[in-house]
Every structure is written in structure tokens, then in C-alpha cells.
């Protein structure tokens, strides 16, 4: 019961900061925080838009159990810029500067879940850029992948690809 009350309070406080019209869409994050957005924002999120379309627009409160209240504002910010046609290289650089590696991955999953192609493609490139100069070990940790090569197999492959191992950044554990 306590959880419900707190989420209602949260939703109230969010509503106050975002005065809404009757047409607004309520996006409910996984941790039950309500974010009111303009229908044009919802249109950017294919998953949300098809949900609205399927119910002929009768349902305007959309639960997004896989997206946290920490990530959703970033997604909304990106969609707003996208609608305004203000996605510039500068904006994108600023946008990701604030995000650590885990946050980028979470947003990437959110973009995939919501089916926002531009954001998905952009974050895909961001992750690629972040791992481009990293060591094999770093990338394994980044994706939580276990090495299933035998030491001999790995040594052989590394020897074959030795020239690709130049210019790799030293691992920095603090980056996450």
C-alpha cells in the first residue's frame, strides 16, 4: 500500500511540473513514476504509439515496466530534440557526456524496447565508439561475456591478428 501512495505522490509532483492538457500521454516507468508527454513525443516511440493505436487512443496511460524513472527523462529529452529537428552533433556529444557506460547500455535497451530507431542507432554508435580502442578483456567485462576459447586457441588467434592489437587504450576500471 505504501508503494502505491508514494507513486501517486510522485505522479502528482510530476504533473505539477508538467502542466498537462487532456491529450497528454502518461508513461509509467518500471518504478511507477508517471511522466506526462505530448502525443507527438509518444509518436517517436513506436512501441508506445502502436499501443495507443491498437486501443484507438482510448488508453493514454502506458506502463513501461522495462524502463526506469532514471532513464525515461533522457529518452524523452532525445525525442523532444528529434521532433524539433535539433539533433546536432553538439547536442549528441553533450547528451552522452553525462552518461556512464552502464547508463548508455540501459538507454540503449530502452531505445530498443520503445523502438526509437534514431536513438537506437545513435547509442549503438556511442557504444561502438566506447569500445573501439579497448582491450579484449575490457570488452568481455563490458558485455559480461565469458571467454570460451582454450588458452591455445586464443593464443593462436591473437597471433594471427597481432597487427590489430596496436593502439589499444590501457584498461581503466573506473570508467563504469
Amino acid at each position: 500500500m505504501a508503494e502505491e501512495v508514494s507513486s501517486q505522490m510522485n505522479s502528482l509532483s510530476i504533473s505539477e511540473t508538467n502542466p498537462s492538457s487532456s491529450a497528454t500521454i502518461s508513461l509509467v516507468s518500471g518504478d511507477d513514476i508517471v511522466f506526462k508527454v505530448e502525443p507527438t513525443i509518444a509518436k517517436e516511440m513506436e512501441t508506445v504509439q502502436s499501443f495507443i493505436d491498437e486501443t484507438d487512443g482510448k488508453i493514454t496511460t502506458i506502463p513501461l515496466p522495462n524502463i526506469s524513472s532514471h532513464d525515461l527523462p533522457y529518452v524523452i529529452e532525445y525525442c523532444e530534440k528529434s521532433i524539433a529537428g535539433k539533433i546536432t552533433k553538439e547536442f549528441e556529444a553533450e547528451f552522452v557526456k553525462k552518461l556512464n557506460n552502464e547508463e548508455v547500455k540501459e538507454l540503449f535497451l530502452a531505445a530498443n524496447y520503445l523502438n526509437i530507431k534514431k536513438l537506437l542507432d545513435f547509442l549503438s554508435q556511442v557504444i561502438a565508439d566506447r569500445i573501439a580502442n579497448k582491450s579484449v578483456e575490457y570488452v568481455r567485462r563490458y558485455f559480461g561475456i565469458e571467454n570460451d576459447f582454450t588458452p591455445e586457441e586464443e593464443a593462436k588467434l591473437r597471433e594471427e591478428l597481432a597487427w590489430t592489437f596496436t593502439g589499444v587504450d590501457p584498461d581503466d576500471e573506473d570508467e563504469n
Partner: peptide
């Protein structure tokens, strides 16, 4: 990714 890092990442798994 560009080709060089991609080839290196063949060693991941």
C-alpha cells in the same frame, strides 16, 4: 565498428 577493432574483437569469445 571499423575493421581493425572488429578483427581484434574476434578474440572475445
Amino acid at each position: 565498428l571499423t575493421v581493425k577493432p572488429l578483427l581484434r574483437l574476434r578474440c572475445v569469445c
